[in-house]
Amino acid sequence: MADTPATVIAPTLPLPEATHAASVFTPINFILLSVFAVIVYLRLKPSGPQTLPRAPPPTVFRTFTPPSLFPYNGLNNMPVYLAVRGRIFDVTSGRNFYGPGGPYANFAGRDASRGLACGSFDEDMLTKDLDGPLDTLEDLDSEQREALRGWEERFEEKYLIVGKLVPVGSPEADDTKA
């Protein structure tokens, strides 16, 4: 600071404010201006509209044959599918029931129609020969058919239909292979 007349007269007194020498370029002004600039930038900085992460891609509807359905049994991180009367439901969200170790684990990756109709979860309800024709279910009585319909309605409410089941060697199965 340059000496002022005041300092000459009373050197013990504190310095008066140097109003006549006021300058914009003082350290404090610099600091405050920087703060101002940062605030204005933060406020006015262009912000894009909010976006959501991409939705998971939809599952592609497929035609399965019993052998190609078989791997979808929840083992090796595969989803859990099961077939009811030719329609394939994705029951992965019910993995506790239909996945490995669940009470209905036998149905995973298989045609579960007969088992559901008869209310039995045993192995012998499944069609053994994967390459053979599909179970026609013609021998079921009306009570069993009623039970099967009930299961189907529940599945339609809860699970997605992700494909259809055709026997090995049918023209539709050959189409998907080609």
Binding site: T19, A22, S23, P27, I28, I31, L32, L33, F36, I39
Partner: peptide, 17 residues
């Protein structure tokens, strides 16, 4: 030292902020 530099411009800037 820094505060000693306070002047009318500083007041102006502070009010702007």
């Amino acid at each position: 030292d820094i505060l000693a530099g306070w002047n009318t411009y500083t007041t102006l800037i502070a009010f702007s902020i």
